[in-house]
Computed example of a mutant assay.
Amino acid sequence: MRNERARYRQWVRRNHPDLGGDPTVFAAGMASWRRGRDPDAPGTGPVHVFRAPRTPLGVLLRGVRRWYARRRGRRVV
């Protein structure tokens, strides 16, 4: 346990953005530490997030949902 904490503190000192480290690498490393993995271990790279492209139908449905939600919010019973 103590050895893991020492490695964590050393990694933070080496990669913290306030001390000259890269913010994206630091964020990805913190996410992997929170998941319980060592960010310097082999096979652990940066975290990539992919979003599906917006389709015209999806944009239209989102607008209709927002409009309907606003309309329902104004209703007085």
Score class of each variant (00 low, 15 high):
residue 1 M to V: 15
residue 1 M to F: 13
residue 1 M to G: 13
residue 2 R to E: 14
residue 2 R to Y: 11
residue 3 N to W: 03
residue 4 E to W: 09
residue 4 E to Q: 10
residue 4 E to T: 11
residue 5 R to A: 15
residue 6 A to T: 12
residue 7 R to K: 08
residue 7 R to S: 04
residue 8 Y to V: 10
residue 8 Y to S: 13
residue 8 Y to Q: 14
residue 9 R to N: 01
residue 9 R to I: 04
residue 9 R to A: 01
residue 9 R to G: 04
residue 9 R to C: 03
residue 9 R to P: 00
residue 10 Q to E: 14
residue 10 Q to W: 09
residue 10 Q to P: 00
residue 11 W to S: 06
residue 12 V to E: 09
residue 12 V to I: 10
residue 13 R to L: 14
residue 13 R to M: 12
residue 13 R to G: 08
residue 13 R to E: 13
residue 14 R to W: 05
residue 17 P to Y: 02
residue 18 D to V: 06
residue 18 D to G: 11
residue 18 D to K: 09
residue 19 L to P: 00
residue 19 L to M: 03
residue 19 L to Y: 02
residue 20 G to A: 03
residue 23 P to C: 06
residue 23 P to G: 06
residue 23 P to D: 05
residue 25 V to R: 08
residue 26 F to R: 04
residue 27 A to R: 10
residue 27 A to I: 00
residue 30 M to W: 02
residue 31 A to K: 10
residue 31 A to I: 01
residue 31 A to C: 01
residue 32 S to A: 13
residue 32 S to L: 12
residue 32 S to C: 10
residue 32 S to M: 08
residue 33 W to T: 01
residue 34 R to W: 04
residue 34 R to K: 11
residue 34 R to Q: 09
residue 34 R to C: 03
residue 35 R to T: 05
residue 35 R to L: 12
residue 35 R to E: 15
residue 36 G to L: 02
residue 36 G to S: 08
residue 36 G to K: 07
residue 36 G to C: 06
residue 37 R to Y: 05
residue 37 R to E: 06
residue 37 R to A: 07
residue 37 R to P: 00
residue 38 D to Q: 08
residue 38 D to N: 15
residue 38 D to I: 09
residue 39 P to S: 12
residue 39 P to E: 11
residue 40 D to E: 15
residue 40 D to S: 14
residue 40 D to P: 06
residue 41 A to V: 02
residue 41 A to G: 07
residue 42 P to V: 03
residue 42 P to R: 09
residue 42 P to I: 01
residue 42 P to K: 06
residue 43 G to M: 07
residue 43 G to S: 06
residue 44 T to I: 15
residue 46 P to M: 12
residue 47 V to W: 02
residue 47 V to Y: 05
residue 48 H to W: 00
residue 49 V to N: 11
residue 50 F to W: 09
residue 50 F to Y: 06
residue 50 F to P: 00
residue 50 F to N: 07
residue 51 R to C: 01
residue 52 A to P: 05
residue 52 A to D: 14
residue 52 A to N: 13
residue 53 P to W: 02
residue 53 P to N: 07
residue 53 P to H: 07
residue 54 R to Y: 02
residue 54 R to L: 07
residue 55 T to I: 04
residue 56 P to S: 13
residue 56 P to W: 04
residue 56 P to Y: 02
residue 56 P to T: 03
residue 57 L to F: 01
residue 57 L to E: 11
residue 58 G to A: 14
residue 58 G to L: 08
residue 58 G to T: 07
residue 59 V to G: 01
residue 59 V to A: 00
residue 60 L to T: 11
residue 60 L to N: 02
residue 61 L to V: 01
residue 62 R to Q: 00
residue 62 R to C: 04
residue 64 V to Y: 00
residue 64 V to F: 02
residue 64 V to L: 14
residue 64 V to A: 03
residue 65 R to I: 09
residue 65 R to D: 11
residue 66 R to M: 13
residue 66 R to Q: 11
residue 67 W to P: 00
residue 68 Y to S: 12
residue 68 Y to H: 12
residue 69 A to V: 06
residue 69 A to E: 13
residue 71 R to Q: 14
residue 71 R to S: 12
residue 71 R to M: 13
residue 72 R to L: 15
residue 72 R to M: 15
residue 73 G to V: 03
residue 75 R to M: 07
residue 76 V to D: 12
residue 76 V to C: 12
residue 77 V to N: 05
residue 77 V to D: 09
